[in-house]
Design a protein around this nucleic acid. Structure first.
Lengths: 224, 224
DNA sequence: TGACAATGTCACCGGACGGTGATATTAAGT
DNA sequence: ACTTAATATCACCGTCCGGTGACATTGTCA
């Protein structure tokens, strides 16, 4: 429909060709996965000679860098904190962020592809993407910590809390995305499985924060 | 030290050559990772011609199958439930299993490599390994559920609980194994980071089970 | 109109991959 | 000792990869 075959003279337009290449990265990632992400594939997908990748970007790494900047596959802080009010309790806020994170990542194949990619290899590309995400999580932590309720909750390690939950979700979502249907007896490929998970998550969140009822109760839980 | 170079005539021994190939798989996985796992690499590592892989096993997939059977890279239920007594409370038992899981997987590069592999691709081999692990987790769940304390705790979903924690650990361990030093502000490459995680984990466990104090308290937490 | 740079195409290189046929070497059976 | 089959090695094929130099086409500006 859109991508023509070779011969018909395309009007020469550097900017358009650049965009063609950037878009091709996303298409290759979505359709073939990162294992097929190479100079040849991207150029072929863009219907353009691969030498232009070197000329316009310097190489695939730099092209990926641009793609990483322009892509919106990662939710920002505003999206993650949607529904979190300043007077929210920690449990409410955490539950909101968790739900936002889940819905933000689900059904975004490219994002899941990249997350899976980060697990397997660690090169210039994934390190750049990783830094972007780390920056986002830093902002998120900062914003959550600025909530009144959190400032009162002693002993709460919001970073460790977030690391555990986001890593669990990321792992389960990626596994499900890759085709695993059952993990630890949970049907992660069906809504029912995720309902069970969300129920357990809610209990964990409530339990975690209820152990620190807005100050006090410090002598009770500090055994280490 | 052990692996000779090419020329010196080795005594002909099919069984020994088979073993050489199987061991080479583990070495390649441990040293180069699954991305380098190919006919050529394995044969080169074994110091043997690659055609023998076809002759003795049929191909790399079948060789991997044999390797998967003979390897002991996955902890069994006994190892995971070490220290869990029949009179343990759910929180104690869960904490024990969590700690055992962590120590069992850490410093096992091949296991971590395989776990990372399962995230990325899904083929005959990873599916087989996945089934083995799923079977183990099923047994583990069954054993834990048979504890008295658990049978009393209503509303506890031990499978969902385990899925969340094991997936979080797996993800963080693999990321750390791959070289990521900071995740969500946690230094997962250093003991300090893991201490923070373990502290948060303990609070989560205690909080999760304390929400269900051995029966009763059912009308309090069943909002969904 | 003519020169020149920008844009895009083509052909090729060396290397690694999976896979296979032919050949050499060794061990065993008679 | 001689045959024979098992064991192991070698050489080669086609394909894809990342990367690069040479060439063709187009637009711009003097």
């Amino acid at each position: 429909m859109d991508t023509e075959s070779h011969p018909p003279h395309r009007p020469r337009d550097k900017a358009a060709t650049r965009k063609r290449l950037i878009d091709a990265v996303g298409r290759v990632l979505a359709q073939k996965g990162f294992s097929a992400l190479g100079i040849n594939h991207v150029a072929r997908e863009a219907g353009v000679d691969k030498v232009l990748i070197y000329r316009y970007f310097g190489g695939l790494a730099e092209l990926m860098d641009v793609y990483g900047r322009e892509g919106d596959f990662w939710p920002n802080v505003d999206e993650l904190t949607q529904g979190v009010e300043s007077e929210s309790t920690p449990a409410e806020a955490a539950g909101r962020v968790v739900a936002n994170y889940l819905s933000a990542i689900r059904n975004r194949p490219v994002t899941l592809e990249i997350l899976a990619w980060e697990v397997t290899v660690r090169n210039e590309l994934t390190i750049r993407l990783e830094k972007t995400r780390e920056q986002t999580s830093r902002e998120l932590t900062h914003r959550l910590a600025s909530l009144e309720a959190f400032s009162d909750a002693r002993g709460v390690d919001i970073e460790a809390f977030g690391a555990l939950f986001s890593s669990a979700f990321t792992y389960l979502l990626v596994r499900s995305f890759r085709g695993t249907t059952v993990y630890n007896g949970i049907e992660i490929g069906k809504p029912l499985g995720w309902e069970r998970l969300e129920r357990a998550i809610n209990r964990l969140i409530v339990g975690y924060f209820s152990a620190f009822p807005n100050a006090s109760a410090r002598e009770k839980g500090e055994e280490s």
